[in-house]
């Protein structure tokens, strides 16, 4: 569930603004940590990993609206600090290509950043109990577990944004006479048609109703999600297994270690 495919203007303002604020702090801290050493070397590395993720995300499997993300692979190769930066870049570029919402960019960065960091942590935890030759399987398991967790995170975000008083207030219209926010769905727009005058029968039951059906959203996500998690896990297992065979340092120590180990000028070598 690499990012929230929720359009701009659906989640309440306070939620996506908080997402932006948290993401900028995360990126700021990650930038400072990453910039302490070998910063110049890391720039193209983050750029290519972000580009790789965008390429993989650009083709979706239509029936289940899923696309491969390579986010766990990105996390394994970059490590936590650079992963957060790559997550932000991926989401910023996708947002401007019309792929994701601009307002939810912060929340998306949090989700995909969590996916990359958690994937990295789980992969290294699993490596402690399995043989290095089974790195592909370890990466697959880490991916499946990570996607299950981040999907739950997405459902949690929709639950926070889709219900409760705050969401009602944010999605409603400000009544200038009382300076109270009211829900435009109650009258006028939804209950009485597009051109209604909004003064028809009051629907008391509509009061306090959620404007997003979080239960149904969770049902759909948890029904379609596992198919996607499995696909992503298989792809990740295949790629990490392959790379672990031809360039093991890249998988076990990170891409930067692999680059540092290279003989200067031998940019095509290594395998």
């Amino acid at each position: 569930m690499s990012h929230i495919h929720i359009p701009d203007g659906v989640l309440p303002f306070w939620l996506w603004a908080a997402g932006w604020a948290i993401a900028l702090v995360m990126v700021g801290v990650a930038g400072r940590v990453a910039g302490r050493s070998e910063a110049r070397r890391k720039v193209p590395l983050v750029g290519v990993v972000a580009a790789l993720m965008i390429v993989s995300m650009s083709s979706e499997i239509v029936p289940i609206a899923y696309h491969v993300n390579l986010s766990v692979i990105g996390g394994i190769l970059l490590g936590p600090a650079l992963a957060v930066i790559a997550a932000f870049i991926v989401e910023a570029v996708l947002a401007m290509l019309g792929h994701g919402g601009v307002t939810v960019l912060g929340l998306n960065t949090m989700v995909i950043g969590a996916e990359m960091v958690l994937g990295w942590a789980l992969f290294h935890a699993i490596l402690k109990v399995i043989k290095p030759t089974r790195a592909g399987i370890g990466a697959g398991i880490a991916t499946f577990l990570t996607l299950a967790v981040t999907t739950t995170l997405v459902v949690g975000i929709v639950w926070i944004g889709g219900g409760g008083e705050a969401a009602e207030r944010e999605t409603g219209a400000l009544d200038p006479s009382t300076l109270r926010f009211e829900n435009p769905f109650e009258e006028g727009l939804f209950e009485f048609g597009l051109f209604g005058d909004g003064h028809g029968d009051e629907d008391e039951d509509a009061e306090g109703e959620r404007y997003l059906s979080v239960g149904r959203f969770a049902l759909v996500v948890y029904t379609l999600g596992p198919v996607g998690w499995l696909l992503e896990a298989l792809v990740t297992a295949g790629i990490i297994g392959y790379v672990a065979r031809v360039r093991p340092r890249m998988v076990f120590e990170g891409a930067l270690a692999e680059e540092m180990a290279r003989i200067p000028g031998d940019e095509t070598g290594g395998h």
């Binding site: 990650a30 983050v46 290519v48």
Partner: peptide, 22 residues
């Protein structure tokens, strides 16, 4: 201009890499 240097520069590098990787 508002993000750390490494982030801003990587953002620009991503686009160049996109062409080549695609």
């Amino acid at each position: 201009r508002v993000v750390p240097g490494i982030v801003g520069d990587a953002l620009l590098m991503t686009y160049r890499s996109l062409f080549l990787l695609i």
